[in-house]
Nucleic acid binder design. Structure first.
Lengths: 210, 210
DNA sequence: TATCTTGTTGTACTGAATATATTTACGGAT
DNA sequence: ATCCGTAAATATATTCAGTACAACAAGATA
């Protein structure tokens, strides 16, 4: 599954017409992250980023739709895989197990070194307006995919609440796992066992004695 | 619980010094909601709101820290109750049951008529940047209260994941319930049974055959 | 060469949010 | 009545994210 040739507009080696790109998401991401470390997120303007990257301000918005998007490059990539994994699950498997497996598969993309920067800098999400917006965008994207999946699997007879509940809880588990994983420091391994653990205590329910 | 005299800086009848308020959150909220209906959220500027309310632009930011806050007045009020309800639960009750009861109690504040406007207009959250930010602010506030509660209840021996998981799942249930409730239209009664149902299928777990 | 396609640039603009100094309106004390 | 402290309201200026659009640059194609 690793080297799947994607429909990614950047990665394709198909014949490109028109003026060749002089920049890329990666270039801008690198420049931005450098500056975020140096001057903080709020202290870094888009002008700073594009100046460091050596392009004009407008170019930034050719690659990102908002300043906060820089943090979510890898997450957005993984999001593209989610639908594929869901579609690949066997139709007989219980919904939550299918979801759990798909999320686990997605978690494979994140190794011990490949921590989304945003998770290690998590506290700033709570204080910076634009980051909150960008974060919720991703939450909604993820949950909507899962909710639609659950809704179709459960069929039209199901109520409105259950698919929502399944989707939201699964994302809860994913986020909780990711945060715990990120704060684990250098001792963290893959994200996968964290997600598996979270999803398990979930499917099992909180009936326990805690 | 209805007419609890709060520590609300507006509702207090304690002797006020200095220039008396000429506006209020409610006045601005009303003006804003009128305009949102007339011209849509994005089509309404803060200048419009304050002009209709008959105050200056700066006054808006005396009552709200951001444009999107207008939608969350009641939600923020209810948030103040949450901590109180949590503290009032018996220390022997299982954590998730305590949380469930507290959230149910908070849900009492929302009758069939008192639907946060934001929920009936939900689709726009997904498309308007500032609203996403304001929404996640509330999510974080709620979850952080629950997480801290769960963490102290479970004691220092507990891991990092479990309190997060409990808090996030509970909020998942609350949000899923609130959305289903809001979309139920005129047939909706109180929010409470929705929350109870959601929290139940949660504590029970998703082990079922779905 | 002419044309089409696509990336990049420059310019102008809207509007949210911040900062700050100033003014207004009240209660309380002298 | 007059001053004083407090808090609300106002006026003004600035920063910066995000949008819109026209013009230009650089390649492929024919």
């Amino acid at each position: 599954m690793s080297p799947t040739p994607e429909a990614d507009p950047e990665a394709t080696t198909q014949v490109r017409r028109g003026r060749p790109r002089v920049s890329s998401r990666d270039v801008l991401e690198d420049a931005a992250c450098e500056l975020f470390i140096e001057k903080g997120y709020a202290g870094t303007t888009i002008d700073h980023i594009t100046q460091r990257a050596g392009v004009s301000r407008g170019t930034f918005f050719n690659y990102f739709t908002a300043k906060g998007d820089v943090f979510w490059v890898h997450v957005d990539d993984s999001l593209a895989h989610l639908s594929a994994h869901l579609a690949a699950t066997s139709p007989e498997a219980p919904v939550m197990h299918a979801i759990s497996e798909a999320l686990t598969a997605v978690a494979q993309d994140f190794g011990p070194r490949k921590v989304p920067w945003i998770l290690t800098q998590y506290p700033i999400i709570g204080s910076v307006h634009e980051l909150q917006a960008s974060a919720l965008t991703r939450l909604i994207s993820y949950t909507e995919i899962l909710r639609a999946f659950a809704a179709t699997r459960l069929g039209p007879a199901a109520d409105d609440l259950t698919p929502r509940l399944m989707a939201y809880s699964a994302i809860s588990a994913l986020v909780a796992a990711a945060q715990t994983w990120a704060t684990a420091g250098s001792s963290r391994g893959s994200l996968v066992p964290y997600v598996e653990s979270a999803m398990a205590s979930f499917i099992r329910g909180f009936n326990g004695e805690n």
